[in-house]
Design a protein around this nucleic acid. Structure first.
Length: 521
RNA sequence: GGCCCGUUAGUCUAUCGGUUAGGACGCCAGGUUUUCAUCCUGGAAAGAGGAGUUCGAUUCUCCUACGGGCUACCA
């Protein structure tokens, strides 16, 4: 039995499937990034592969303190922990690109030596001038390419000696890839099929910056190769630069072991146009981040799904369905079920608009499926935080009574506040419509009857009220709404007799008295 | 502007040439409920447009339109 399990585990670990999630620590991760991580995670888990976290911090100017930590905590919360990479270690580290500087330099040099890249010494001003000039000539998107490179300062145009002199005296330089003049570059995307680009449309992208850091393009190709990544699953925004990456694999001599590409459709804004952005969050009244985010430098804050009351399981369930579906009519999936059902070939091509209403529904379904005890366990800490110290048994009963009418845990405290404290306000309409001296007398009598009641449960309360209604020739609608408002302040809620039972005799009587005193006619 | 990707109801989607175009969220109506919610039943709601290919196109091809992405010494 144990041997069998071990054998099975070894079998799984030996899978060659290796995927990575490679965010850059420029701020909080939004749900588009979480979904990319999710698909990578599901693909690895489904195939017994390895899910790696790599931090792409090659742009030091955009580095945001706390972002890396935020990313890791977010993945942790969502249940998408990596088994290799930053914070976990592994055989292919370091996993932070800023710590791999020398590796990239070596491969940049290899590309220069093989004639596939060259030094360029142009200053930002010179580049601007070039672009301005070309724009004036009617070229809307000026490129540094086979044509224009001939008029710039680089090792292709400068005499060999001058290049050497510039390098020796420490002039600033970048390294650019030398795009072939006219060549078709094509690759097969797992989601989109064959995609083809013409190399004359691509420009001589900078692959190594003057600060000694590689750009994304070089770094991701080098790292994916060195880390033996088998599948690159990333957002569609990378599709246009993929031919560049394909060429880099080729020029570096890695074409036969090149990973497979899968470019994910984007998550679009629920309103208007464009892809979902980090700024869309609180502007639209719902979170776009997994966790609350506070920027330590500029004090910016943004709200997260966790703090909004989402559970991790429905959160990833909802995200998984933004761009993928299993082809069955099942919509509610546990994480394990997602792993079992996940299949890259069933990922859609077109972008998905994020819908917060649907997200709420997923959370509600999950919440309703939890047992009262489990739910109470989740709710207890939140209650304590809000200053309530009700016993677990009581909270469990609240969950039983109230869970059908909430979306989030927080709703128990907000919309169900009357379970934990006297109502602070009462529904004014009901007072205006139903409250008068005669009804007041009736409730005073009812109060007295309740006081004499030896048994306090929903059934007994109901019998008393029914008797009262018959005796006074009233209707349920004359009494019950008022009774409910006395106890809850609001007109909505679980069956009122059960609420009264749960509140207990003392509390119920007290709330009735308070109300009557407050509204003496 | 150029290049690339996409296009089934308001939204997420099923359909791998022949279906009354299915499901879900949301919406509306009815039932259940003292109320609200849940739940149940029902309803409105979709193949962007135009050419082809085919006995037959939502499905394949092309064009147009629309949407999106990219177009930095950012990722």
């Amino acid at each position: 039995m144990f041997n069998f399990a071990k054998l099975f585990k070894n079998l799984i670990m030996s899978s060659n499937i290796r995927v990575r999630f490679a965010p850059s620590p420029t701020g909080p991760l939004h749900i588009g990034g979480v979904r990319t991580a999710l698909y990578n995670y599901l693909f690895a888990a489904k195939n017994g592969g390895t899910f790696i976290l790599r931090i792409e911090d090659t742009d030091q100017s955009r580095y945001v303190p706390g972002a890396e930590n935020y990313i890791i905590r977010s993945l942790e919360w969502a249940g998408l922990m990596h088994t290799e990479g930053v914070g976990q270690g592994g055989d292919f580290g370091p996993y932070r690109q800023s710590e791999r500087k020398e590796i990239y330099r070596q491969y940049a040099m290899q590309l220069i030596d093989s004639g596939h890249a060259y030094y360029a010494f142009d200053t930002p001003e010179e580049l601007n001038d070039m672009r301005e000039r070309m724009r004036k000539q009617g070229l809307p998107s000026p490129q540094y390419n086979a044509i224009s490179r001939q008029y710039m300062k680089n090792s292709e145009t400068l005499p060999r000696e001058e290049t050497q002199i510039r390098l020796d005296r420490g002039d600033k330089f970048v390294i650019r890839i030398k795009m072939p003049r006219k060549e078709e570059v094509k690759f097969e995307d797992m989601i989109r099929g064959w995609v083809a680009f013409q190399s004359d449309q691509l420009d001589d992208k900078v692959i190594f910056k003057s600060d000694g850091m590689p750009t994304y393009h070089l770094a991701n190709v080098v790292d994916d190769h060195l880390m033996k990544i088998s599948h690159v699953i990333r957002g569609e925004e990378w599709l246009p630069s993929t031919p560049l990456h394909v060429l880099l694999y080729r020029y570096l001599g890695w074409e036969t072991e090149r990973p497979q590409f899968a470019h994910l459709p984007l998550i679009l804004r629920p309103d208007g146009n464009g892809k979902l952005s980090k700024r869309d969050g609180d502007r639209l009244g719902f979170p776009v981040f997994p966790l609350d985010w506070k920027n330590e430098e500029n004090g910016d804050t943004a709200s997260g799904f966790r703090e909004r009351g989402f559970f991790p399981e429905p959160f990833i369930n909802m995200l998984a369905f933004l761009g993928w579906n299993p082809g069955t009519e099942q919509e509610i999936f546990s994480k394990q079920e997602l792993i079992n059902a996940f299949d890259i070939s069933r990922i859609n091509k077109s972008g998905a608009r994020f819908d917060f209403e649907k997200a709420k529904w997923y959370n509600q379904q999950y919440l309703k499926s939890l047992s009262d005890t489990t739910l109470a366990g989740e709710l207890l800490p939140l209650l304590k935080q809000a200053g309530f110290n009700h016993p677990a048994g009581y909270v469990k009963e609240v969950c039983r009574l109230f869970k059908e009418r909430v979306y989030f845990l927080n709703d128990f405290i907000q919309e169900g506040s009357y379970f934990f404290q006297q109502p602070a306000v009462y529904d004014k309409k009901i007072i205006r419509k139903k409250w008068n001296t005669s009804i007041q007398t009736i409730f005073s009598d009812l109060l007295a009857t309740f006081k004499s009641l030896s048994q306090w449960d929903a059934g007994s309360i109901e019998i008393v009220i029914k008797a009262l209604i018959n005796q006074k020739n009233l209707k349920f609608g004359d009494i019950l709404p008022v009774f409910r408002v006395m106890l809850c302040g609001t007109l909505a809620g679980p069956p009122i007799f059960e609420v009264a039972e749960l509140l207990g005799k003392t509390e119920t009587l007290q709330r009735m008295e308070t109300f009557i005193k407050l509204n003496e006619a």
